[in-house]
Design a protein around this nucleic acid. Structure first.
Lengths: 252, 252
DNA sequence: TGGCCCCAAACTGCATGCAATTGGAGCGCG
DNA sequence: CGCGCTCCAATTGCATGCAGTTTGGGGCCA
């Protein structure tokens, strides 16, 4: 039996959704770097909508973890800590193992062709920018998730994959995408053969190696932000106005 | 080393967040059944805020999958299909295995005490309503997730657990909570002993049995809603105004 | 009785306006 | 030169208003 067919989980065409999609893409392509400010008016003006709508969109993206929203402060693109990045990859591994487990041996010829076509596109994009390569690689995984036709799984895989994308811009060394592409091909092939155990293993190691290539070393003090380092100490403080830091290394 | 300590992932105290929490709780306690209407004005009036805020809250809950939002229509509490319910449980199993894997052997005495205290509370609540038992059982799992101190994991486990709660009100037979409580105790004990493999297995079977007790039979036609049954047929129709059904069994 | 149409009420989609909060530039002082 | 203070522009939090869409019920006709 083929993996379940069709569905219309596509985001509706609200103005809100349009802005969300645009911002999501800008973020994962690193046009908007972590920490970048996202003022409501500016967004509204840029997209030709009112602040209300921009605000709502930011709320949605915050729910996805791509944007950080602090009361009375300008929204910024999320800056996950190194630990959060690692956690995201751990979760992603489990979710995507689930994806390929459900898919193994159940793909139609058309679906396999679609996957191959996508990887071909990744191949052709090797000359282009890193950002595009990363986006395409991510979309491969999301495409897989879609084929399970489980809306929930699609949502979670997408979200966590986007978050991982985000961390790449923070902690990644310039990386070679070639092996990733080969690993994608291997996964397709194992899926087609229906070798469930093998494909789960392939996916596991694929993501693990991406994570290891990307998240260079725990480097205890390499946290981008002084505030992160001090966070655990601040926990002890009961006052609401925690500690007045001298102004250093303000991002933005 | 103890599982990572503390964090402040608690939702901020916006009016929006307040409404979200209230609705979430009402939904998982089944005060609001799946399909229940949630008009913006009514919510706004009830909580003493404007429609704008109520609307924003609904947006957040929709992002969590607890509410269904269709353009120009009244928001309703989500009505997951049987398949979606099953998918949610599958995801939940993987996520919670991850939780206990991270926690095995790393809990402080205080944390173990906290877990035991919670299960004691579950025990005491056995006399009360089903809704409360279900909520407490769910909160046990979320408490575990919190102890990983991974905000992402907390978010996903919470969300998926709430979704599972939601499905219980749809497909569950009146169930005995006793075995679940015992299973919770067994999990705590295995966590304390640090038996990683065992606790992962316990969690797996615990959730699997909850799912099997809850999701009674695929019962092909027992779907609550005629529209769900007809959905695959509607896929063939190209017209936008799909099929004009005679008015039957309108929920609401 | 049963089906169809039309219209008013109900409701959502979105923009705008006002009050409250923030942060950072400018200024004075040690 | 650095530190702290004040004050104002920038920005958010939220309510309200208007226009467009959906709902559902009464009346009309068969």
């Amino acid at each position: 039996m083929a993996a379940r067919t069709s569905s219309k989980t596509s985001e509706s065409s609200d103005k809100v959704s349009v802005i969300c999609r645009a911002l999501r893409r800008a973020i994962i392509e690193q046009a908007l770097e972590p920490g970048a400010k996202l003022p409501e008016d500016a967004l509204g003006e840029r997209f030709g909508v009112s602040r209300t709508i921009a605000r709502h969109a930011l709320g949605q993206l915050a729910a996805e973890g791509l944007v950080e929203l602090r009361r009375n402060r300008i929204a910024v693109v999320a800056t996950p800590s190194w630990q959060e990045a690692r956690d995201a990859f751990d979760i992603r591994i489990e979710l995507e193992r689930l994806v390929v487990r459900q898919l193994a041996g159940k793909l139609t010829k058309a679906q396999i062709a679609e996957l191959n076509a996508h990887v071909d596109a990744e191949d052709r994009a090797r000359g282009g920018t890193d950002a595009v390569s990363i986006r395409l690689a991510t979309e491969f995984h999301i495409l897989l998730a879609h084929m399970t036709n489980s809306p929930i799984l699609v949502r979670y895989v997408s979200e966590v994959a986007y978050r991982c994308c985000l961390t790449l811009s923070l902690y990644s060394r310039p990386h070679s995408t070639e092996c990733a592409i080969n690993e994608h091909r291997a996964i397709i092939s194992a899926l087609a053969k229906g070798d469930e155990a093998k494909v789960m293993d392939l996916m596991h190691h694929h993501l693990d190696s991406v994570a290891n290539r990307a998240l260079v070393a725990p480097t205890p003090q390499r946290g981008r932000d002084l505030l992160d380092i001090l966070a655990p100490y601040a926990d002890e403080v009961t006052s609401d106005r925690v500690v007045k830091l001298p102004k250093v290394a303000r991002r933005g």
